[in-house]
């Protein structure tokens, strides 16, 4: 039996029922930019970097169920332009000073900036005041770099069963909080071995006493761009589960 397909920029992509456009694309080796998507988690749809047009209408590819015959536009000048603007918004919203960040070279936000040739943040910087939390013995939280993808929140709730992280505030003042009356990570049951410690796409959750361990040139995105790592993002069965 022929499996159902749709097209992305003219290329035919097969899918299984229940897959999102993003999942089908990544399974087929077709790269769609993303930050809040993670292969082991259910789609979230907040970063909007995976915005595409489906039959001429804008859509979020990580949350849109794939359907036969869809005509998906992804790498068009118009959409790339919008994705650049979204990256620039994230860059000015926080304080992203790559030279001092241990995640540099392994950071998805940075790698996507390179991928899309974002030379400048373009917009005016917000320079928010976001104090770091160094209270935990093993982990540093640098909120300056948080892009609010909620992956740590999802990992801590769904995998670790700890609910260490959550969001508070609203709009531009929305921010990550931890599950303690003191507001300090040290007063939670967070551990370095938690899944939530492994999923941050940027440099918020960092292991202490490990600094710049990998030389420049050997870091994750040094050799090949983000899009060349498409095989890493193939969805797992968990992420394609039914809404619970």
């Amino acid at each position: 039996m022929m499996s159902a397909t749709f097209t992305i920029d003219g290329q035919e992509v097969p899918f299984t029922p229940g897959q999102s456009v993003m999942q089908a694309a990544l399974s087929a080796g077709v790269f769609i930019p993303h930050l809040c998507y993670h292969p082991e988690f259910r789609p979230h749809g907040s970063c909007k970097l995976c915005t595409v047009k489906v039959n001429g209408r804008p859509a979020t590819s990580c949350t849109l169920p794939a359907a036969a015959g869809m005509d998906v536009e992804s790498n068009t000048p118009e959409i790339l332009d919008k994705r650049r603007a979204l990256l620039q918004m994230l860059l000015v919203e926080g304080n992203h000073f790559c030279p001092s960040c241990e995640k540099s070279g392994n950071c998805k936000l940075q790698a996507l900036g390179y991928e899309l040739e974002v030379f400048t943040p373009h917009f005016n910087q917000f320079y928010p005041d976001r104090p770091v939390d160094a209270s935990h013995p093993d982990v540093l939280l640098d909120f300056n770099r948080c892009i609010l993808c909620e992956l740590c929140i999802r990992a801590s709730a769904e995998v670790d069963g700890k609910n260490v992280f959550a969001l508070s505030g609203r709009g531009i003042t929305k921010h990550l909080i931890v599950n303690a009356e003191s507001g300090k990570l040290a007063d939670t049951n967070f551990a370095l071995t938690d899944k939530a410690a492994q999923v941050c796409p940027v440099g918020v959750i960092l292991e202490k006493r490990v600094g710049f361990a990998v030389p420049i040139g050997q870091r994750h995105y040094d050799a090949a761009p983000f899009s060349a790592h498409v095989a890493e993002f193939k969805p797992t069965p968990e992420s394609q589960g039914e809404r619970s």
Binding site: K48, L148, G171
Partner: peptide, 9 residues
Amino acid sequence: CGFCTPCRV
């Protein structure tokens, strides 16, 4: 509400 990048920023 601040959920998505384009509206929040």
